[in-house]
Design a protein around this nucleic acid. Structure first.
Length: 690
RNA sequence: GCCCGCGUAGCUCAGUGGAUUAGAGCGUUCGCCUCCGGAGCGAAAGGUCGCAGGUUCGACCCCUGCCGCGGGUACCA
């Protein structure tokens, strides 16, 4: 049994008691951890709520403490509960029987219990959650801002999976957009290259300057080109015309420019996927904009919107000739708050329009489907699919295709600057299919990663006076202003390698590199996860490259220490310790001795570490509900910190007293299981040594 | 103008469905290898939780107003 399910049982008892004794129904019932371990293992502030409810129901004024006194015996009847104390203005504080619980937690960790299906809260519904993340324009290398998106999305996916959800992971590929067109303009007009020449160029590039890096630089050149070489110039309309021409050709398809664009986009996608693979981030499906166009997703959505009266064609005013979505709540006359344009007067669709079509498909409400082919086979049998217009491609795959689309809840990991268009999409979808509603479309928003003026200087970027005065500077692919993901990972890996070589000189070169890689990824992922989503990260090299303090490697290190303890312990010692604890329930003298180890100041400290580890399930549930992975990162760090202290305070391997040693080993075992599980959800692995 | 987010220690950030001393990390100062690995542990210094009202027995947290910063409000995405 886990702490989580024990909590559920206690809550049920309180609910039942409130019903029987006071005739009221408790809606919100939370279990807190008391501010200090001396105040108990669990606290229910429910009596404040009950006092209000009772007053409402009967008019009778009852003091929260008096209510608590009445509930006390009910909770004390639990076997695992040692005693109940009423504290403060009316808190119910629960003190568990530590020896009994320790044994319970040791025999099965909550994760093993979940795997074995003996958790009472197990979900039976198999509704599907869908998470779209990464979705980088395939025209250049990924930068650190993109990595924040991917790491947040990937971690949220892991959180959902840990909570027992079925999840489908999508990465949207805008292969027919302006950004791809810009790079194509660069190849055609700046480099005078055709497809053959680009392929030859691609072949000749070395791993330290791959295709996506080449495009990164070319893209910034195109940006200058549009302004005739001077960033402060206006855009040159004639040159912009080149972009428009290319864009039309790409959207049209079946021509040489479209073919060239497809090569460029696909190669960038491959490079970006390689970057993400380094971070342990994978996908189920790459959904491409070209298929949304060519498989007529938009036309279908357009029909649906017209049919349902969601959009209307304006015949006069400044939007004459456009199809717009009226904004019911718009407050008026201001020109910046008018209806949202879905189809432009020249007949082309806006991004918002295309996104509504895609969102409808995601929710299984479009009535059309993509065709699919295999894009990549990941190492452990996982297959990545991509959309295609070729209806026969799937049969050639030789693998069974999962049923893509049709999610019950769709999370779109997109930065907060797009919250307005995202709101339009959600509302549009809800208007088309009211039975789905706007809540099925969740904008998982986050703030950008920006550069501090100092970080810009370290990158050798010269700043304008205006920029220098800002607290941070927005990254810009267009300006080539940003920290490339692979550069940063490389830097982290070489930093980690130095440390590994210092500490583990006996390791083989391969092992050293593998370990350095794990440490680097831990550092990067944790760095991006420790900030809450709505905090702008002002990127700082020193902080991002650190392995000390509140970092991924610190958490990893604590887990590595638990492993090395078990390596040091002989099999026999371990077996003895295990069997000693299993005998607790039948041996009251032994149980007393275990209780003694866990009592007093030192015992309480040990015990609070155990209690902390048991909160993992609840933290996961919270993160799932709030869609805030930072909570899990913070929690993981607190477990690592508590264990580091425990490790420092107690000698585990050399402990002479067998009962005490068994307890210390049991605690270490529990920490190892929970900490390793928590890290795995953050996408951080625990190396053998580091 | 309107909408959204933010304002907490020198710096970077957590936090709160009301519990007495508001928490981390970095930085600063001082300690800790008779060691299961110091990517560690302990201690100290450092805060009128932007300002002003309001609700309450009680507000860093809820409400209102103001100030400051950022983002959005395009026939861009």
């Amino acid at each position: 049994m886990s702490l989580f399910s024990l909590q559920q049982q206690l809550k049920e008892e309180i609910r039942g008691a409130a019903r029987e004794m006071f005739g009221v129904e408790v809606q919100q019932l939370t279990a807190d951890t008391p501010p200090k371990p001396e105040l108990g293992d669990l606290a229910f502030p429910v009596c404040f709520e009950l006092a209000k409810l009772i007053k409402q129901a009967t008019g009778e004024k009852m003091a929260p403490r008096a209510i608590a006194e009445k509930l006390k015996p009910r909770l004390e009847s639990f076997d695992q509960v040692a005693r109940i104390e009423i504290a403060g203005a009316g808190y119910i504080n629960v003190f568990f029987d530590r020896a009994k619980l320790l044994q319970l937690f040791t025999t099965k960790t909550s994760f093993e219990a979940k795997r074995d299906g003996d958790l009472t809260d197990q979900k039976t519904d198999q509704s599907k959650k869908m998470v779209e993340h990464t979705s980088i324009n395939p025209n250049k290398a990924a930068h650190i801002g993109h990595v924040r998106n991917a790491v947040l999305g990937d971690t949220f996916v892991r959180i959902l999976q840990a909570a027992g959800d079925r999840v489908e992971v999508q990465n949207y590929i805008d292969n027919t957009g302006v950004q791809v067109a810009d790079v194509v303009v660069g190849f055609l007009h700046l480099e005078a290259m055709n497809l053959e020449k680009i392929k030859a160029l691609d072949e000749s590039l070395t791993p330290d300057y791959p295709f996506d890096y080449y495009c990164w630089d070319l893209y910034t050149e195109v940006g200058r080109f549009y302004r005739d070489g001077n960033p402060s110039n206006d855009l040159n309309p004639e040159k912009l015309g080149m972009r428009t021409k290319v864009l039309h050709a790409i959207e049209e398809g079946n021509n040489r420019i479209a073919e060239l664009a497809d090569y460029v986009a696909t190669r960038n996608v491959e490079c970006i996927l390689n970057t993400m693979e380094r971070l342990g981030i994978r996908y189920d499906l790459l959904a491409r904009e070209s298929e949304i166009l060519h498989l007529h997703f938009w036309e279908r959505a357009f029909e649906l919107m017209k049919m349902k009266g969601v959009i209307r064609k304006e015949t006069e005013g400044k939007h004459a000739g456009c199809w717009v979505m009226p904004f019911e709540s718009h407050t008026g006359t201001d020109e910046h708050e008018s209806d949202k344009i879905i189809v432009r007067s020249n007949g082309t669709v806006t991004y918002t329009g295309k996104d509504i079509a895609y969102q409808l498909w995601k929710l299984g409400k479009l009535g059309l489907n993509f065709h699919y082919r295999v894009f990549r086979n990941y190492q452990d049998d996982h297959t990545l699919w991509i959309t295609t217009t070729d209806a026969k491609a799937e049969a050639k795959a030789g693998v069974e295709r999962p049923p893509f689309g049709g999610g019950d809840t769709v999370y779109n990991v997109i930065d907060s600057r797009q919250s307005y268009p995202q709101e339009i999409v959600a509302r549009g979808v809800a208007a088309i299919v009211p039975e789905v509603g706007a809540d099925a479309s969740v904008h998982f928003s986050y703030e950008m990663v920006a550069l501090s003026p100092a970080a810009c200087e370290e990158l050798g970027i010269t700043l304008s006076e205006e920029d220098r005065a800002k607290p941070y500077i927005e990254m810009s692919g267009r300006k080539g202003l940003g920290v490339k993901a692979d550069d940063l990972i490389n830097q982290l890996e070489s930093g980690a390698l130095l440390e590994v070589e210092k500490r583990n000189p006996e390791l083989s070169e391969t092992d050293k590199k593998a370990t350095a890689h794990e440490v680097a990824i831990a550092a990067l992922r944790y760095f991006l996860l420790k900030f809450t989503r709505n905090t702008v990260i002002a990127f700082d090299f020193k902080e991002a490259l650190s392995f000390e303090g509140e970092t991924g490697p610190y958490c990893q290190y604590a887990a590595v220490r638990t492993n090395s303890i078990f390596r040091k312990l002989g099999d026999e010692t371990l077996r003895d310790a295990d069997s000693l604890l299993t005998m607790i329930s039948g041996d009251s003298a032994l149980q007393l001795r275990v209780s003694e180890v866990l009592s007093g100041e030192s015992g309480t400290e040990i015990w609070s570490l155990v209690m902390l580890t048991q909160q993992l399930d609840e933290v996961i549930a919270q993160c799932r509900k709030s869609a805030e992975p930072a909570n899990l990162a913070k929690y993981t760090f607190s477990v690592a910190r508590a264990f580091s202290r425990f490790y420092h305070d107690h000698r585990i391997v050399t402990e002479k007293d067998d009962v005490r040693r068994a307890v210390l080993i049991a605690v270490t075992k529990i920490v190892r299981a929970q900490l390793t599980a928590a890290l795995a959800i953050l996408g951080i692995r625990v190396p053998e040594q580091m």
